[in-house]
Design a protein around this nucleic acid. Structure first.
Length: 477
RNA sequence: UCCUUCUUAGCUCAGCUGGUUAGAGCACAUGACUGUUAAUCAUGGGGUCCCUGGUUCGAGCCCAGGAGAGGGAGCCA
């Protein structure tokens, strides 16, 4: 007999048909009712065991966490709480789970505890929902770009340039670390290393992405990215996934349009595809919020927040306008910011970003045209000589979810800027070649995938939306 | 990395001004019950009070150092 997934079983009505299901026991109540879950959906299938005809030894082995296989008749439920239930004919224990040692109990566990048993947390309602949503979002990203005929490009994981300027790097080597080969000067001799030069894990696929965009017009990458920053926050990981589209002939406005479309598309997809999961997560968040004092609670539920984000245009403001808004805000005048806004040119702190998104506009905000001093070398210089064509998308509760720009395609301006910022032009000769041979205006951005998952699931710690988080001092599993 | 809070049973937490044998709920074991929904009831077992050192007649509690975790900041996606 062919196994049926529980999601499918729950969609049918009980017609006394014989079926086979397999899954893991969530709880065994009353020596009679098994809540069985196989990960296909958040809801469990209730198995009704006849304890009179089932051997005592088998009953004892039906414990939380055990894996079982059940053949039985699917009927309309005799009890409340579910529409159908499976009356057990034969039950086989596929894998025992020692109740004394299995750490998951049929009760609420703290997210911190579950993080320590990340290998088992998939078997909880919350993480089941989170990772099904994550899957839907990842698929939707590909669907969006494929429908638009973008080319999915695999940029390298190992990189030899440290000129990308996007943070601390993880060194890649096969040297004996305790005893690396040295030159006559006593320095580490990288000529003898695997690649013959120092190499690192990638911090961005953007520069390579630009090369491909100068051939395919529209490309995107979606892969892991590594930053060795000593960041201990709820929104940073040492290993995370990033989506980086790069489009020839796109100016900054086209870039913003695409980013906004992408975000709305994938959120809509996950919302439709995983409605029950998001419903569950929304409810979970509501319970969580009840623990907080009234003032800290959010005005909108998760579902309302997602709807609101989908139904409204993102607010587009320039850095200069944002500074004016912040400077004139009562918050600034009453000196409620830790860092007061006094002059044009300062970098915005997260308290300022939060004020703009959560208090002033109350919706996603796209900030554009930042001062060139606080942005990367490759961003296109505006005619005012002060700003660059940058755009950051800020989301409520998350902060920066997208960072992008129109790229500087004019060779002379790019080289000058690189020299000003001490970026070695020789090392990036291949990057500069795109400006030498058939350069064109182009744009792109980076979308932090886990930050997107945070927003859609309503989780608050980024370590809870990636299966096995890598953070400073933590690389378990 | 900085600021801040925390670390007591498998989990969540209480533990008074430093005082005798460190508690509760859940989980687990045993039994009862059997249409339950985190089932219920009874009984029982379960502790390196994060680690190291110090003060004291006496430390879960006070002091110093260390480790880990949460929240906030910086860096960023």
């Amino acid at each position: 007999m062919k196994r049926i997934r529980i999601k499918e079983v729950l969609q049918t009505s009980g017609t006394n048909q014989e079926i086979l299901v397999k899954g893991w026991v969530r709880t065994f109540r009353n020596n009679q009712f098994i809540a069985l879950n196989d990960g296909s959906c958040n809801n469990n299938l209730q198995i009704v065991v006849d304890f009179n005809s089932t051997p005592e030894t088998t009953l004892k082995r039906i414990t939380t966490g055990a894996c079982i296989s059940v053949v039985g008749n699917l009927i309309a439920s005799q009890g409340k709480g579910q529409t159908v239930e499976l009356v057990c004919k034969t039950l086989e224990i596929l894998g025992d789970s020692d109740a004394e040692k299995f750490p998951l109990q049929p009760k609420k566990h703290s997210l911190e505890f579950l993080r320590e048993i990340a290998h088992l947390r998939f078997r909880t309602n919350t993480f089941g929902a989170v990772f099904r949503v994550r899957n839907a979002l990842a698929f939707a990203v590909h669907k969006f770009f494929q429908e638009k005929d973008f080319v999915y490009l695999h940029t390298p994981i190992i990189s030899s340039s440290d000129a990308e300027g996007a943070g601390e790097l993880f060194r890649v080597t096969n040297f004996d670390i305790a005893n690396p080969p040295k030159t006559e000067n006593g320095e580490v001799d990288f000529k003898q290393d695997f690649f013959g030069k120092p190499t690192n894990l990638t911090v961005s696929g953007q520069l390579e992405g630009e090369l491909a965009a100068m051939a395919f017009s529209d490309i995107y990458t979606f892969g892991p990215t590594f930053r060795a920053e000593n960041s201990n926050t709820t929104r940073h990981l040492a290993e995370f996934w990033m989506i980086e589209p790069e489009m020839a002939f796109f100016d900054l406005n086209d870039n913003m349009d695409l980013a906004e479309d992408l975000l709305k598309y994938v959120i809509t997809y996950a919302f439709t595809k995983c409605h029950e999961d998001i419903e569950f997560l929304s409810q979970r968040l509501l319970e969580e919020e009840k623990q907080k004092p009234q003032i800290e609670r959010s005005e909108l539920s998760l579902i309302e927040k997602l709807r609101f984000c989908l139904d409204n245009e993102f607010e587009r403001v320039t850095y200069t306008e944002a500074i004016e808004i912040l400077k004139d805000s009562n918050h600034n005048k009453k000196k409620k910011f830790s860092y007061l806004i006094d002059k044009w040119g300062v970098d915005l702190q997260s308290e300022h970003e939060r004020y703009l998104v959560e208090k002033h506009f109350k919706k996603p905000v796209i900030l554009t045209d930042y001062p060139k001093e606080i942005k990367a070398f490759y961003m296109r210089q505006n005619d005012d000589g002060k700003t660059v064509g940058a755009m950051d998308i800020l989301f409520p509760g998350i902060g920066e979810i997208v960072g992008g720009s129109q790229r500087e395609e004019r060779l002379e301006k790019l080289e000058t800027r690189m020299k000003e910022m001490n970026i070695p032009t020789e090392e990036l000769w291949w990057y500069l070649d795109t400006r030498r041979f058939g350069a064109c205006p182009h744009s792109g951005f980076g979308l932090g995938f886990e930050r997107l998952v945070l927003f859609v699931t309503g989780m608050t710690n980024i370590r809870d939306v990636i299966p096995f988080p890598r953070t400073p001092k933590n690389c378990e599993f």
